[in-house]
Design a binder for these strands. Structure first.
Lengths: 342, 342
DNA sequence: TCGTTGTCATCAATCGATTGCAATATACCC
DNA sequence: GGGTATATTGCAATCGATTGATGACAACGA
């Protein structure tokens, strides 16, 4: 293992003071002779000198490092968000410290503290989606010594920059589309019991129905966790109804539903229409391709970085900024157009 | 935004010196009166004091932070590896700095430097799988001032701790199993042109054939990138052969193959048997469940951390440690047993 | 010879912790 | 009261950088 080369060592070798070396290597405006300038750079290069960021950030009070906390890095959506965000950060010379909390508010808190004490300049925070007592977390975030941007999910009653997709709108758009295609008995399969976003998507679904005067039928609303097996279990009941279409409020839920449909020999959209959420790569496997509400993680990352960037530059307003992004309806082939037959 | 509380401030408030506060808060053996001890702890707690890790690691020369570089965090396997590794690190009080390089050796190099200058105590390195000129990277790794552990992939000719699955063995096991089930015409679909691991899996496939005296038929060896569409394209040719079974050397390759099989109305294992690699979650969707070679990222993480841990404790030998893990054959229902019919 | 100007480079404080060594205070003994 | 032990606490250097304030030296003019 090689040793770390320090400023002082370079200085010694060149025969100048550490200050001069620092000045030159950082291209600070200063009066150092061209000759010595060259010498310093050459010696630094020859010794593979890289400044110790730890020491630097101690005095500079900035590390050009940002932090990201996601509930679960193994989730496709968060992994993709993390990837996009990291790329975006790097473009501006920031490194991104990605951490994964497991979804509990306690772990979020712990990681947040870790990041802060490790000197990140700002934090992107994706909190768990389940209802939980996040008072401590809220408290911590509001007293943070660095800017924070909440991504994809919010904590109620917390004044903080937020960037998120409109989940209610997503549920609305999906349902609205089904209605426009002539469907009247529309089931939904959502995680409303334990998920905030699920609850919002359900609200959108109901709004769409209400808007056109369709009844909100509790017998058409089904509950599922965000796991394929859970949706698979729940799907049997869904298929026992007279619904002609189903709004599946997440990709995993759609996959569980599809598996069940497949097994029962039902065809899409012949026997039943499906609108999914958050197209994942697994979807490419399906015939027909799934019509879905799509949330591009890249867009989320872009806006989140934008907010952060403003704060870091001190250009953020006093009040928190709130960016609400509209998801997109991607029409493919899993919805039958009933109006053609009328 | 709140301010950061420093040791000195606590000291001031308590009316003692910073040293005393530091000593007490770190539970160092020292003779500070029980009374003051309590006072210090109470004041620190009241002010939500958290030590500045930046300052601490500067003097302690350790940060209790490790770094991980993966080619692509959006890949399921790496995301899972990252998740497991982070959990494992946290158990030992280390934070993990996850970064994603995009797979180029240049970016790997850049990230590696970033991590080092940011003071991580060690690096887990998963390099890109494609052939590339990694001389600079090799050079850098061998001169690193901190321990490094290469995970899942190696750089040729680099003396460095390594933890990886035996890809050749995986290819061998898959093929061997097919042979044992009575198959004689076995095709394979691998990424041997551009991937090191692909090439190894192919070697395993050929060894299994050779071992039982079956001919190695170039007409049964097909090339595919690690993307679903690529495998989908390549699959048509595979199905035009007289093969009774296919060894698909990655999960994505298997998925592309399945999509094509599905479209052609072929059934598994009735028309053709399939052994996949790296079961991904998407597999749960398939009927029948896929027999596959499995590499548990958790196991990889566990061993990688073990190596790192040893090095950090100074218990590592002079020579590099090399851990080769055997993948597991998970038998499910995608392979037809031809011996039953004999 | 002294003062002025300009050029090149260094000093020393600072960031927020840690820690070996020294210092002070009190008690106790003869 | 002088000497020694013991119990508490503080000083100051250190980690590796950054940076405003200062110093040294030469050349030049008066």
């Amino acid at each position: 293992m090689a040793n770390k080369v320090t400023l002082k060592q370079i200085a010694q070798e060149v025969g100048l003071s550490p200050s001069s070396v620092s000045l030159v290597l950082n291209n600070r405006p200063c009066r150092i002779s061209e000759e010595n300038r060259k010498l310093i750079k050459e010696v630094a290069a020859r010794n593979h000198y890289v400044p110790n960021q730890i020491a630097r950030s101690l005095v500079m009070r900035e590390s050009r490092t940002l932090g990201l906390i996601v509930p679960n890095i193994e989730s496709r959506f968060f992994a993709s968000l993390a990837g996009s965000l990291e790329k975006r950060c790097r473009e501006d010379g920031y490194a991104l410290f990605i951490t994964s909390s497991g979804g509990s508010a306690d772990d979020d808190l712990e990681l947040l503290r870790q990041l802060v004490t490790r000197g990140v300049d700002g934090v992107f925070l994706v909190v768990g989606d389940e209802f939980s007592d996040d008072r401590a977390l809220r408290e911590e975030v509001s007293h943070l010594p660095i800017p924070a941007v909440m991504v994809d999910r919010a904590i109620e009653g917390l004044e903080c920059d937020k960037v998120m997709f409109d989940h209610e709108m997503g549920g609305y758009m999906a349902t609205r589309y089904l209605i426009e295609q002539g469907h009247r008995r529309i089931a939904c399969l959502v995680n409303a019991r334990r998920s905030n976003t699920g609850r919002k998507r359900l609200a959108g679904y109901e709004r769409a129905l209400r808007e056109v005067g369709l009844p909100i039928d509790a017998r058409l609303e089904f509950e599922s966790e965000y796991y394929i097996p859970s949706a698979y279990e729940a799907s049997e009941a869904v298929l026992a109804t007279d619904a002609t279409a189903v709004f599946a409020s997440s990709d995993n839920i759609a996959l569980g539903l599809l598996k069940r449909l497949h097994e029962m020999g039902k065809s899409i959209p012949g026997d039943i229409s499906v609108v999914s959420y958050d197209n994942s790569a697994a979807d490419v496997l399906f015939e027909p391709a799934l019509t879905a509400i799509e949330q591009d993680p890249g867009v989320l990352a872009e806006h989140a970085f934008g907010c952060m960037s403003k704060r870091l530059a001190g250009r953020g307003g006093r009040r928190a900024e709130e960016v609400v992004l509209e998801p997109a309806l991607i029409v493919k082939d899993s919805v039958l157009d009933l109006t053609e037959y009328s």
